[in-house]
Design a protein around this nucleic acid. Structure first.
Lengths: 218, 218
DNA sequence: ATTTTATCGATAAAAAATTATCGAAAGAAG
DNA sequence: CTTCTTTCGATAATTTTTTATCGATAAAAT
């Protein structure tokens, strides 16, 4: 019975903002505040209050109260539930060079529902080592081990030349979602979700905004 | 005279896609192909051909030719010019822990017009070292050095507790754009551009897509 | 107890982004 | 040389996302 509605009808844009709300709410919770208004959230995050209300109404179970706003703890619980922060998804990491090492060492992913259970690398010098408690296995074992562990999420942090190969192996192992940090477009079957962490795109947007700002001043 | 039009009228969504086009075009160039059609680009990148044409028409100087498509080399040049890939912007990096080290060591930023000229860290053990040719200075010198070097872009890769402080120092030093990798919302004056590299948001979107895919199957 | 104020949710309007349609042009094929 | 095919650019339609408006409600203030 019935939380299908939730998956639908919530726009990607909204989903993308939820983690920011979540962080803000955690701050408020830590500060001991019981309720928070859409106006306050909006001001802090540079959004409009209407948008905040709309986003929250899409995923919150309890309504906000006039004059008081929303209950902080309830909202956090709602976002946790909606984004699945309260039940961990296993993932594997491919590539433990500079970026991969950083990702493996970042303990925060657990709070976001992501649990890295194994890492892989082609470099023999790295195999057998451990980073942040995650063991590094040889690349050859990727597909086999992924299948055995029944992991559905793969994180690609290899140099761009190796990225497509890594993706192929992940798919072969039965992964259904790939978080790609390599600056290349991956070719995968249609029923596999790919999210490119495209830093070049972020940078492009940032530098255009910078250009605008400088332009408005002169 | 006259490239003001370019800054305006190009949507953020379009700008965000340009780096992907750029990468695809580089591949085609390397493969020796002279021209490429919007259909081909669209298919590879899982977009619609109309959208590709619209995006390109917003920034390209030459029109595409019926039956042939666009000239690969021209398009690359157009994107280079539009995104500023051909003239480097200086930047400083704050924080050379795991992620900061990875960013400093990534040589690819130069291709995206970003030149990291100095790094800063609070940990004495790191000061004076060099990562990827970038020297690490003490955090206390941040504002002063940024001002002296006349750097306009700051990259924050410190733990979240230190991020707001880093932002404050960057702003004090005269930075006008901040690329924030720490998972916190930064409070800065209105005339400073902030781009949050929000991995939690990416992850949220990815896992929702995964959930959808799995849902559609059963 | 009444008024004032801050806030909400719902609905409507506007803006932005994507997709569809179609005539025209340029090369390829016959 | 004519026809066919691919592709373009422009315009229109649609969809999605954001913003505006407004009556209702609950707490706070008078």
């Amino acid at each position: 019975m019935g939380n299908e509605k939730e998956l639908l009808n919530v726009s990607k844009a909204t989903i993308g903002r939820l983690p920011a709300y979540h962080r803000y709410l955690q701050e408020k919770l830590a500060a001991g505040e019981k309720t928070v208004s859409s106006t306050a959230i909006a001001e802090e995050l540079h959004l409009s209050a209407v948008q905040v209300r709309k986003d929250l109404s899409a995923i919150a179970r309890e309504a906000g109260k006039p004059k008081l706003g929303f209950t902080v703890a309830d909202l956090i619980a709602d976002i946790d539930r909606f984004l699945g922060y309260d039940n961990l998804n296993d993932a594997v990491l491919v590539g433990v060079g500079g970026l991969g090492k950083a990702l493996a060492g970042y303990s925060g992913f657990k709070h976001y529902g992501l649990n890295i259970v194994a890492a892989f690398d082609a470099d023999p010098a790295r195999i057998g080592t451990s980073i942040g408690g995650i063991k590094v296995f040889p690349a050859e074992e990727l597909a086999r081990l992924v299948r055995r562990l029944n992991v559905l999420i793969g994180i690609i942090a290899v140099p761009k030349e190796a990225a497509q190969g890594a993706a192929d192996e992940l798919v072969k192992g039965g992964v259904r979602a790939i978080w790609n940090f390599a600056p290349v477009h991956l070719n995968v079957p249609a029923n596999i979700a790919v999210k490119n962490e495209d830093m070049a795109a972020s940078l492009a947007i940032l530098s255009k905004r910078l250009a605008e700002i400088l332009n408005n001043e002169k």
